[in-house]
């Protein structure tokens, strides 16, 4: 049995060997936003030659590649997955995700993973002590003879625009689930964003606010290192995102309609909305609601963040509900500090 060694990718010679090996197996994306997230990389050598490798980034396994030439297939693969699982277990991480090409789904199923979404371009699998079934079990359910809607939002922070979208859905349906995107890469943390949505919809009895957990992450965070063209990436990420929503979330919670805000200014969001429609319909209807305007201007959370940065709190009352204003005023210096420390306030 060949030993497993840790690969130090900051060593240029090792990096080059690792990269060449992956390229030989058709993995070609080594952009910084994929590679920089890697916490640990391991490899197996035969003599001087790298024959298997795998990496961990948070709770995600990536850059898994194995050369099976002259060996019983699967041996190195199992060794790599086994070792990465152990390394994560030592950090108390037991819930793992894999993003990979569809042709490798079977190999991962063989080592205990379940596929939660498979498209032509890519697949997401998970394994561990907490699975999507457990997530869905934890959510309050309504009987399927009611009309039930779902909205996924980041709400960074909660504005009158978000309020309008939720209100519209709440008027048109018996029940509305609001799923909060669970990615702490925003100016407002997940718990702050959740708290503000709850406060801003407290008067609507038929609205249930739910943490999106690992299943409604910001779609742009899916690893895409095995996708060849940049243009395909948004489609790939959105398709998986939509498949999870359709096949698991909507199916289990009896959601018949997904509400979205229109996005006249963002090409990416337009593609996103289109793909969502293609995948979700006809099982789940997609309703795109025109964005709420104040003085001909679309309400945008980004404007709110810029006003926070520029200390223009007087402008906020047009954009956000009182509950959000209260939170911002009592946490102003803290929020401004986060921006100064380099928290990106563009984007979503």
């Amino acid at each position: 049995m060949n030993d497993i060694v840790e690969l130090n990718l900051s060593d240029p010679i090792i990096f080059k060997q690792w990269q060449e090996f992956l390229i030989s197996l058709n993995i070609n994306d080594f952009s910084a936003n994929e590679v920089d997230k890697i916490d640990q990389t391991i490899g197996i050598f035969e003599g001087e030659r790298l024959v298997a490798t795998g990496s961990i980034a948070g709770n995600i396994l990536k850059y898994i590649a194995v050369c099976n030439k002259g060996r019983e297939s699967g041996t190195y693969f199992n060794t790599i997955i086994s070792d990465l699982t152990m390394r994560l277990a030592q950090q108390n991480i037991f819930h793992l995700f894999v993003f990979t090409k569809p042709e490798y789904v079977e190999s991962f199923k063989h080592v205990g993973f379940q596929a939660i979404a498979v498209s032509k371009q890519g697949a997401i699998l998970e394994s561990g002590d907490y699975l999507i079934q457990d997530y869905l079990n934890s959510i309050v359910k309504f009987s399927d003879n009611q009309s039930i809607a779902g909205i996924v939002m980041n709400a960074n922070p909660f504005t009158l625009g978000h309020r309008y979208l939720i209100e519209t859905a709440a008027k048109e349906n018996d029940q509305v689930y609001v799923f909060v995107v669970n990615t702490d890469a925003s100016l407002f943390s997940t718990s702050e964003r959740t708290q503000l949505i709850e406060a801003g919809t407290a008067d609507l009895d038929n609205v249930t606010v739910v943490n999106g957990s690992d299943y409604m992450v910001s779609f742009a965070t899916f690893p895409a290192y095995f996708i060849k063209s940049q243009a395909e990436i948004v489609t790939y990420q959105t398709t998986l995102d939509a498949l999870i929503f359709k096949n698991w979330i909507a199916k289990t919670l009896h959601i018949q309609t997904r509400y979205l805000g229109s996005e006249p200014h963002s090409e990416t969001t337009n593609i996103y909305n289109q793909v969502l429609k293609d995948v979700l319909e006809p099982e789940v209807k997609v309703k795109i609601v025109d964005r709420k305007k104040v003085d001909q201007q679309i309400i945008s959370a980004r404007d709110v963040r810029e006003n926070i940065r520029d200390n223009h709190l007087e402008k906020l009352s047009q954009l956000v509900p009182q509950s959000t204003i209260n939170f911002i005023s009592s946490n102003l210096s803290n929020l401004q500090q986060r921006i100064q420390k380099g928290m990106n306030i563009d984007g979503n």
């Binding site: 060794t79 086994s82 699982t85 037991f94 080592v111 002590d129």
Partner: peptide, 10 residues
């Protein structure tokens, strides 16, 4: 808490 033992070796 969650714990793990064993490997995926043959």
């Amino acid at each position: 808490h969650t714990a793990i033992a064993g490997t995926l070796e043959s």
